[in-house]
Amino acid sequence: MAEIQLKNISKRWGSFVGVDNFDLTIADREFLVLLGPSGCGKTTTMRMIAGLEEATEGEIHIGDRMVNDLDPKDRDVAMVFQSYGLYPHLNVYENIRFPLKVRKADPATHDERVRKAAEMVELTDFLHRKPAELSGGQRQRVALARAIVRKPSVFLMDEPLSNLDAKLRVSTRAQIKNLSHELQVTTVYVTHDQIEAMTLADRVVVMKAGVVQQVGTPTEIYDNPANTFVASFIGSPAMNLLDGEILNGTFTGKNVTVSGLNAPNGPVILGFRAEDATVSETPAGEIAAPLYTIELLGDATMLTVRAGGQLVSIKAHKELRAQIGDPVAFNVPAAICHLFDHETGGRLNRP
């Protein structure tokens, strides 16, 4: 068990900045997710914690040790990669056991530890198989078991579900969530998938171009995004963001009018979630436009219109039926609207 302190760490290659002044304390037993698009610096941050990349500046502490100068094998971390990294000539049992042999753990403990790790990821019946005889989800669970058997102070997981199909991602995600609860080990998890971040994390770090944009619980980041980048990255669908201007408390944009806003006059970006707007019973709603597309989701119906040159999504009740091109109108309560600076994209209010 270990707290991780990242003290103003940066990573540069010449003039290129991969990670810029990352400063954060990850609590003992916390599940922290690094979230962002490709190239944002999340994997580089994890690799610096692991010792696979050397920090250009700053200090990395795991537990009570500064580990900047320690080799990866001496940092007491276990990594699970996007590629499973299994040995094809070894069966599942020997793949899981391999870290114990390398670290010269007492051979008398190997069998019990391997079988316990295999049981935790539901692989007991597959210990005799080779990796080629396993599905993608089973291979990823072998990789998880191999990390578990080590009993490390820290788990580092780099997009472990990226190679799985949609159904396997859901079931394996649930397994990782349950393992995190059982093992109570500090975990840093890298992903570009905001659903993984929302469902797994105690806290989320949203990154862009090497810079931390926001740190918070999934609820905090979803309900109060710090800027338009976070707002557009978190949520499925992403938050609707509309350019316009506020005059005397009323936001006006193309096909959009929202009154009752507590904000100074001037250009702004107005944001709202698809589930926060409602279909208007009259044609004179606050957003009125022809229906661009309709998607039946089973539990709801997603309506999309084009307003102000942008696509705007609204989640309606599942019984609603309409045709593309039909006139539709929505109401957006002022109390749920997010307002962002037109120039910087930074938040101006808190709904």
Rank of each mutant, 00 (worst) to 15 (best):
D158E: 12
V212M: 12
I287C: 14
G325S: 03
H181W: 09
H342I: 10
N91F: 11
E122D: 12
A289K: 10
E220N: 08
A316S: 13
T228K: 07
A322P: 11
A117Y: 08
D106A: 12
T282K: 07
E159G: 01
S162N: 13
N178R: 15
V215N: 05
G325L: 00
V67M: 08
I221H: 09
G18C: 01
T186F: 00
I60D: 03
N224C: 06
V190R: 09
N224Y: 13
R115G: 04
T43H: 14
A166F: 01
P72G: 07
L86Q: 08
D23T: 14
P131G: 04
T278H: 03
A238P: 01
L200E: 09
I62V: 14
E133I: 09
P225R: 15
I60K: 04
M1C: 15
H192R: 03
V190C: 10
K104L: 01
R169V: 06
E159C: 02
H61A: 12
E119P: 00
A105Q: 09
R321C: 04
E3I: 02
H342K: 11
I314Q: 03
V205K: 09
L311T: 08
Q194W: 09
T45E: 00
V142G: 07
G298C: 14
G51W: 15
R129K: 15
A334Y: 10
L70E: 00
V67T: 15
A300M: 10
P351T: 02
E94S: 11
L320M: 14
D165S: 10
G308M: 12
R173P: 03
A174V: 15
E54A: 13
S171V: 14
G216Y: 12
I195S: 13
I314S: 06
K177W: 02
A329F: 00
A55R: 05
I96G: 14
T252Q: 13
L123Y: 00
K318N: 04
D20A: 05
R173W: 09
